[in-house]
């Protein structure tokens, strides 16, 4: 019985991870963003400036400058180091190919900025309370 419970618990845990890869952070967006869920691949492309739309509407990524949510987002979503990400943004900014994303320094600043911006998408810690913004599920 104990082994069966353990097995069931393990399966449930795996299912939770598979459907919610953003375990240590949550994706938040302005209320005018057209989607409620987004594929991990598309989310990565938006933050690497390769994609500028979600649900056929323009979106703008917003990043944090450090902290636990930023570290988790880099590791679990982008698969890049902070240096690689900053280099990609500098490449875009100094060649004019794209405008480097707005950077904020806390969950509160992220929520505050996104709640007032149009088409903004960002991330905060899993424990942050996203007031005035839309929570996006990562597929």
């Amino acid at each position: 019985m104990r082994i069966r419970n353990l097995f069931t618990w393990s399966l449930l845990s795996l299912a939770a991870v598979a459907t919610c890869p953003a375990a240590d952070f949550q994706i938040v967006a302005s209320k005018d963003v057209a989607v409620d869920e987004i594929a991990m691949g598309d989310l990565k492309k938006i933050f690497l400036l390769e994609k500028s739309s979600a649900g056929a509407k323009h979106v703008v990524p917003v990043v944090q400058q450090g902290g636990a949510a930023h570290a988790a987002f880099l590791k679990d979503c982008l698969g890049e180091s902070d240096q690689e990400l900053q280099t990609a943004y500098k490449d875009a900014a100094f060649t004019g190919k794209a405008i480097a994303p707005k950077a904020v320094n806390s969950d509160a600043a992220m929520i505050s900025y996104i709640s007032m911006a149009k088409g903004a998408i960002g991330y905060v810690s899993a424990g942050a309370i996203p007031i005035g913004v839309k929570k996006i599920t990562v597929k």
């Binding site: 323009h58 703008v60 900014a93 100094f94 004019g96 794209a98 405008i99 088409g119």
Partner: peptide, 17 residues
């Protein structure tokens, strides 16, 4: 170098360096 850029509309941005 110094550069300046802005997003004018959802689809249009301009800049110079």
């Amino acid at each position: 170098a110094l550069n300046i850029a802005t997003q004018l509309t959802d689809k249009l941005h301009v800049g110079a360096q």
